[in-house]
Design a protein around this nucleic acid. Structure first.
Length: 218
DNA sequence: CTATGATCATCC
DNA sequence: GGATGATCATAG
């Protein structure tokens, strides 16, 4: 069973296709400038709001920020990831992509088919932004990638990764989780830091590249 | 405190 | 340079 409460779905949830239509005209535009327009904090007291780009794109889609552990737009999930040019001049995913928190009790007793992980991966819109430096003085929106976890092979691999996490928690507890587990999706620490040791599922960069359909032609 | 939005810092 | 573990701002 899914321990998460059912999410109230506001009428203003837009479809992924609508979101793509809204964002497409902004391809090539500087998200940092747009962040300023919306009043999204990027730096504060010399420290960065690491989520500024994601919050900015949410604002562009008219989405209020919340902390519900459910897909942002009811039926699909929005993500923003940084990409960089490699030595060959091709785009490359810079970071793994955090997907959702691991509640050990929930994961231990919830089959993959009813998991928060699958909820979030079933339908995604992955937005790639150009990363130039940690100051993020400018960052262009580069690519929009629609991805659905429906393909049999990939689905099975993600399910296997999930079940690895599940078995580990059941046998040794969440403390035994480590980033080297999982082929497409890994468990890794995530949280407020400073002694708090919680975990989340992350999509490895290779998986994110597949979601974005990045190739050596890009 | 836990979730959201994520990327930073460090070690190999 | 890549991968793992740690951490930042914000909201309920």
């Amino acid at each position: 069973m899914n321990a998460g409460p059912a999410r109230h779905v506001p009428a203003k949830d837009i479809t992924r296709e609508q979101a793509i239509a809204i964002l497409k005209p902004s391809l090539g535009k500087d998200l940092r400038a747009i962040a300023e327009q919306y009043g999204v904090t990027v730096w504060k007291n010399g420290r960065k709001n690491k989520g500024w780009a994601g919050m900015t794109v949410e604002q562009m889609l008219g989405h209020p920020q919340d902390a519900a552990q459910a897909p942002d737009f009811g039926t699909w999930e929005l993500k923003v990831v940084p990409i960089v040019r490699n030595a060959q001049g091709h785009w490359q995913v810079k970071e793994t992509m955090a997907i959702t928190m691991i509640d050990p009790k929930n994961v231990a007793e919830t089959p993959f088919e009813h998991s928060h992980l699958l909820d979030k991966l079933r339908a995604l819109l992955v937005c790639a932004r150009e990363w130039k430096s940690d100051r993020d003085d400018e960052s262009r929106l580069v690519k929009l990638g629609a991805f659905d976890l429906a393909d049999g092979e990939t689905f099975r691999q993600v399910q296997a990764d999930y079940e690895t996490v599940q078995r580990t928690i059941r046998a040794d507890g969440a403390k035994a989780l480590t980033g080297w587990m999982g082929h497409l999706v890994q468990p890794r620490t995530k949280g407020p830091g400073h002694g708090v040791h919680t975990h989340a599922f992350y999509a490895r960069t290779s998986f994110v590249a597949r979601m974005l359909k990045l190739t050596d032609a890009d």
